[in-house]
Simulated assay, not measured.
Amino acid sequence: MADICVIGGTRYFGRKLVRRLLDDGHRVTLVNRGRTPDPFGSEVDRRVADATDPDALAAAAGASRFDAVIHQMCYTPRDAVAVCEAFGDRAGKLVLTSTLEVYNKDTFRWEIPAPAFSPFASEGELDPAAYRFDLDLPWHDPAFLGANYGEGKRQTEAAVVERAESPVAVARVAHVLDAREDFTGRVQFHVDSIREGREIHAHPSPGRTSIVSTTEAAAALAWLATSEATGVVNVAAPDPIDVYGVCAAFEHALGRKAIITERPEPSGERLSPYSCPADFGMNVDTAAELGFEFTPTADWLPDLAREAAKEA
């Protein structure tokens, strides 16, 4: 049994992460703003703090020691420095939730050259320890942060690796799908479009991308928190998929054909979020080598599509 602190943990795969940890017998402390209800009742300890406020986060951490701290709400290098200072060496491991978007060559800013990423990038192609971060950029501005999400996550990784006083694991998570808690609206977009006979736009000869279910993303984070694994680990199903493959699952569930139209300049409103101009995803060999095997898309996407069709 481990003592684990989860920063966030009230929605999407964060909620499934907490449920997984509790079911595995671990003690869980939640740190968040206390604005979103959670279903865990007396099963968890709760501490209220805005993770972007260093003083509040430090007060919430107090003198407590945890076997692992999992930060699900870390978007800027300032947030990264705050969590490192708040917990110091009282975290046995610091686990950061990051994103596939760090490999997006189109999101590099300020004349930072993008590496020549492979179509399905491996972790070593972007080393957080070799990346620089800038605490003076206007990360407090929501518009700036929204326009620089990928860059914010790259700098967040770099800051955590440099400032943490404990071992670090960075989970770079692929596009996450869930049938019920469709936080992104991506699943609902496909269900509604197919059911209502609306066009789904795609890039010409669309590439494949990496996806993962909320259940598996949660399982991977729980494993990172409780295993000896450290460093950067890609979190995704082993078999990338294109927009046609995604739509096929929903077509079968709904009993209707998708109207997919390839366009040189696809409309943003109708563009499938799983259509890429070229292959863009992640290699997951590292996770397998460390002992975590992801479930192939074909083994879970059809069930998710059926559930989503019923929920809609």
Rank of each mutant, 00 (worst) to 15 (best):
S267N: 10
N234W: 07
P37K: 09
A82T: 06
R186N: 10
E196C: 07
G9H: 03
S275H: 04
A171L: 08
G92L: 06
G185S: 02
E165H: 14
A51C: 14
R78P: 04
T76P: 06
M73W: 11
G281S: 07
A60I: 08
G62W: 00
P240T: 11
Q155C: 09
Y244N: 12
T209N: 08
D242P: 04
I200Y: 00
I194N: 01
V176F: 09
E151D: 15
I200Q: 00
A91H: 03
D45A: 15
E101T: 15
P37L: 04
V284A: 04
E101Q: 14
V31A: 06
N148D: 01
H140E: 15
A202M: 10
P277C: 05
V48Y: 11
L57H: 08
G207K: 06
F66I: 03
R11P: 08
P115A: 05
Y131D: 07
T226K: 07
G9W: 00
P54H: 13
G231W: 01
V168W: 06
S42T: 15
V284Y: 01
R46L: 07
L17N: 09
T230K: 06
P119K: 02
A147I: 05
T29G: 04
A114M: 10
S118W: 14
V233C: 10
R163H: 14
C74T: 11
A60W: 06
H203F: 15
T29K: 05
V6W: 03
F120A: 10
R198M: 11
E265Q: 14
N148L: 12
I112T: 15
L17Q: 09
F66N: 00
L96S: 06
V232S: 07
E289A: 13
H140C: 15
R132K: 15
P167N: 13
K153G: 07
K105C: 08
V95Q: 01
A121V: 01
F133P: 02
T29I: 10
H252T: 15
E85L: 05
S210W: 06
P264F: 06
G281L: 00
Q155H: 01
T99D: 15
T230V: 09
P240R: 09
P204V: 12
K153E: 03
A312R: 04
A51L: 08
D299H: 13
E216M: 05
L301H: 01
